[in-house]
């Protein structure tokens, strides 16, 4: 019978912690950049000008339909060959997952924006707001509120997708777990602990997001049921 022994894993807790920090660094960067870029892509795609809408649509579709692993390899190995810059694993990972998540966030933003009733646009225009003012003050605040669950879903997906960075030797949580597993010959225990860490971190994020939703719910319109 297999005897579970977690002591070798706990002895390497420092490595796991460093891995977690790196995972959070990539995820955080990709989330922050992805949201900003995603909003920009969504606004471009919604634009009536084809010169803005088409390139945005192209970027969104390419990054939504190709495997993230290929995207990562491409930014890490191919891009340096083409433009002659040195890519660190972190930079490649940050760029890949920023653009990749921006493609998904763009669709979430777009869905949220078009879900706002026409009457809201009209009320904003009727008091003399310009299109950008109406978007910023009236439409986006309501849209973002409706988008929180979808954003959360994408953020969780993103954090798990970042495990791919191990393939370009970036020392994230899973990369660290792999090292520990090989060193201690305790893969079951190590990967179980790693999974547990993902579970705890993501659950904490989820709870925080639900609290945020509930705070927004004071105005009566809510996504919490």
């Amino acid at each position: 019978m297999y005897v579970w022994d977690f002591t070798p894993v706990l002895a390497n807790a420092g490595l796991l912690a460093q891995g977690l920090v790196n995972t959070l660094k990539v995820t955080g960067t990709a989330l922050a950049c992805g949201l900003v870029l995603g909003l920009a892509l969504a606004l471009m795609r919604l634009s009536r000008r084809r010169l803005a809408a088409w390139p945005a649509g192209f970027v969104i579709e390419v990054f939504r339909t190709t495997p993230p692993l290929v995207q990562l390899f491409w930014f890490f190995f191919a891009l340096p060959l083409i433009i002659g810059v040195e890519m660190t694993p972190f930079l490649a990972a940050a760029v890949t997952f920023s653009i990749q998540s921006s493609a998904f966030f763009a669709e979430v933003f777009r869905g949220g924006i078009v879900s706002i009733e026409r009457g809201q646009w009209e009320a904003a225009r009727a008091i003399g707001m310009t299109q950008p003012q109406a978007m910023r003050r009236i439409i986006l605040p309501q849209a973002v509120k409706r988008m929180i669950p979808a954003f959360m879903e994408r953020a969780i997906e993103l954090m798990k997708t970042t495990t791919l960075v191990a393939t370009i030797a970036y020392a994230d949580l899973l990369f660290a777990a792999n090292e520990i597993a090989q060193k201690t010959f305790r893969p079951l225990e190590t990967f179980t602990v790693a999974a547990l860490i993902y579970f705890v971190v993501i659950t904490a994020f989820s709870l925080a997001a639900r609290r945020l939703e509930r705070r927004f719910a004071v105005s009566g319109e809510t996504t919490v049921h």
Binding site: E117, G119, Q120, A123, A126, P141, Q142, S219, G220, E221
Partner: peptide, 10 residues
Amino acid sequence: FQQFNLFPHM
């Protein structure tokens, strides 16, 4: 407007 169209987040 007929449907008021108040801004619900304000």
